[in-house]
Nucleic acid binder design. Structure first.
Lengths: 172, 172
DNA sequence: TCCTAGATAGGAATCGTTCGTAACTAGCCG
DNA sequence: CGGCTAGTTACGAACGATTCCTATCTAGGA
């Protein structure tokens, strides 16, 4: 589990302002707030979530601005996107080397670190496909929340049949 | 590069029919065709792509049916989904152990195999998050197609600024 | 302080995906 | 082999996420 370190956040904000300015992009109030929101979150918020959070401090922000800013940050390498499924892209400020645990049912994504996995040696065949910017491990499974809901399957060859459709519906 | 092995396809179709039937789900013409399409493709098609392909043989299929079938196949473990970004889920019949190379710009996804990467040892911390069904490596970079378009960046600290917005627009 | 390229708000538009419903049909039963 | 019925399908409308359009604003250099 990661905790929010105040010092780290400020440091991130500074870094953000510098990179953005260096890129010749204007540092607007909105952009700062959007980035601040990301920097203080340890989750992987959707654009919508960022929007709602920022809206509390800057009531007039538009969802469009949030999206534009988020993509820009991604292009600048300040955040990463985690296209989970088809239920909204998620953004990740943690650009340190890390890996992901993804729940196959609820879509939850958690980071985890592992020095061992950081330095994976990739096969030659990969180089033929294109350049390699990063390599991370993606672990899939059922998170603690979802695990207990497993039913005893039909004991056929395959483990489960269609116990429940993977959660894809709105919650609100 | 992978090639389409006719024998392998038929084998997959048989396996498909068996699993589906065992699950108490009806084996309809549409479902067979949809699966056949997936089984003969080495790419990772979007639902839309599968729809168009199947439509050539079964002109009346509805996109809705394709989606329902695809999710069902996923729930049965016959195909995997590759939520690339926010541009449409992709489906993958290759359920053998494999890893992915994802182009950060065009979204292309290619499989690659590596005996070495198959047996990764995961850290203990992962177990605390939930059960582990599979672990695969996701390599990100620019594919051969996209690489040449790199422009010489501003030579600042960061490699690129915003040379081009990552491709997210329709093509048709 | 002034100017201007670049940014914003807001609503309409788009695209992928799902729902609601009435018409089918696979697979079981006799 | 024909009938039944639960599970499926087609289709259009509905939805949610993301992007576009454009008139208005503003960061930051001169």
């Amino acid at each position: 589990m990661q905790k929010s370190d105040p010092g780290r956040s400020e440091q991130r904000l500074d870094h953000f302002a510098k990179v953005v300015r260096d890129a010749g992009v204007k540092v607007t109030h909105q952009r700062l707030e959007i980035f601040r929101e990301l920097a203080t979150t340890e989750q992987h918020p959707t654009a919508e979530a960022v929007f709602r959070a920022v809206q509390r401090r800057v009531p007039t922000v538009s969802l469009d601005t949030v999206y534009r800013t988020l993509w820009m940050l991604r292009d600048l390498g300040l955040v990463a996107t985690l296209g989970t499924k088809g239920e909204g892209v998620r953004f990740d400020v943690n650009i340190d080397r890390h890996h992901h645990y993804v729940c196959m049912r609820c879509g939850l994504v958690r980071d985890f670190e592992s020095r061992t996995l950081d330095g994976l040696r990739l096969p030659e065949s990969v180089k033929a496909l294109g350049s390699v910017v990063e390599a991370q491990v993606e672990v899939r499974g059922l998170c603690a929340e979802c695990t207990p809901k497993m039913k005893t399957a039909k004991s056929s060859t395959k483990p489960a049949v269609t116990p429940q459709r993977t959660q894809r519906k709105k919650t609100s």
